[in-house]
């Protein structure tokens, strides 16, 4: 059967042919999408809790991930406080500095792995085609994935902080918590855009883990997790300024530890807001283009 032009457009804009929601009033449409996001989130939790041992492990992981960075720092300096760090950013406590920086890796992983790997996972389960035929746009599906991941991430951070507080006693300014959370909220929007790009590359290259791992490795180098921006070569510093987590880490450490950022708090918020628009628009465009191209070439179900 030959499709009409409106149907064809609808199918190609990312919503499946069963999706009539584009004609609904905005409020109903948003509720419809929110239901789908919630359903996806619940599905992910059910899948995750099917493997309870694996879930418990995921709460211990962040502590195991963090410790080599902290112990390496202590081995280098011969103690907990670094005079050189004091000279660079105005704070000496390497344990607090590294711990706060490391928390943000989890958020980066959300974009790179939870969202990026989501479509590949569905493909492995054999459920990618049903997901693509569901009557909601594909970005709703990835948003559901990211919602589950964000909730999971907060659980992991709590486990990480409990351990560090118990063993090392973190010294932070409690008044900095709220503005830090505000920055994290904004940063998550920008990371969603990056996650959309990662999810779409999986459709194209199939072996999505490789792209996630490669990009994750590059971002780990340029993001100032366990060091300030100043120690990076100039070109890396410039790249770092396009990464939302850079601002998340720097402002959180600024509010909580008093790190000197090299720019004002307002500048940081404005830049992240701009990055939100850029990454989300870019992410949605890339996803739509790749999704359309994959379906046209008939390679959706290829491995």
């Amino acid at each position: 059967m030959i499709k009409g032009s409106s149907e064809r457009e609808n199918g190609e804009s990312g919503a499946g042919p069963l999706d009539h929601s584009a004609t609904w009033p905005l409020l109903f449409r948003l509720r419809h999408y929110a239901n789908a996001v919630w359903a996806e989130n619940i599905k992910e939790w059910k899948l995750e809790l099917t493997y309870p041992l694996d879930f418990l492990r995921s709460l211990i992981d962040p502590v195991v991930y963090l410790l080599p960075y902290v112990l390496y720092g202590i081995a280098l300096v011969g103690g907990r406080f670094s005079p050189n760090l004091q000279k660079l950013v105005g704070t000496t406590d390497i344990v607090s500095f590294i711990t706060i920086g490391y928390i943000f890796i989890g958020f980066m992983n959300m974009a790179l792995w939870a969202m990026g790997f989501s479509l590949r996972k569905e493909q492995m389960y054999g459920t990618l085609e049903p997901v693509f035929a569901a009557p909601v746009p594909r970005w709703v599906f990835t948003m559901g994935m990211s919602m589950h991941s964000i909730l999971h991430q907060f659980l992991m951070i709590v486990a990480q902080l409990i351990f560090i507080l118990a063993v090392f006693s973190l010294k932070v300014n409690p008044l900095g918590l709220l503005p830090s959370l505000a920055m994290i909220g904004l940063m998550l929007v920008a990371l969603y855009g990056i996650g959309m790009i990662m999810a779409s590359t999986t459709l194209l290259f199939k072996q999505g883990w490789l792209i996630s791992e490669a990009l994750g490795s590059l971002l780990m180098v340029v993001t100032p997790i366990a060091y300030p921006l100043a120690v990076l070569p100039v070109f890396m510093q410039k790249v770092a300024l396009a990464v939302p987590t850079t601002y998340g880490i720097l402002t959180a450490r600024h509010f909580l530890l008093g790190e000197q950022m090299g720019f004002s708090v307002l500048t940081a918020f404005v830049r992240v807001a701009i990055l939100c628009v850029i990454w989300v628009v870019f992410g949605l465009v890339v996803f739509t283009v790749i999704d359309k191209s994959t379906r046209r070439s008939g390679t959706l179900s290829h491995y």
Binding site: G73, S217, I225, L232
Partner: peptide, 24 residues
């Protein structure tokens, strides 16, 4: 990439010690 994974540790060393050698 396994070699690239080492770079954050090199930068961390530079930030905490200030040189490419550490007496500790």
């Amino acid at each position: 990439f396994p070699v690239l994974w080492v770079f954050p540790f090199l930068f961390q060393g530079k930030a905490l010690v200030g040189s490419y050698s550490s007496s500790a």
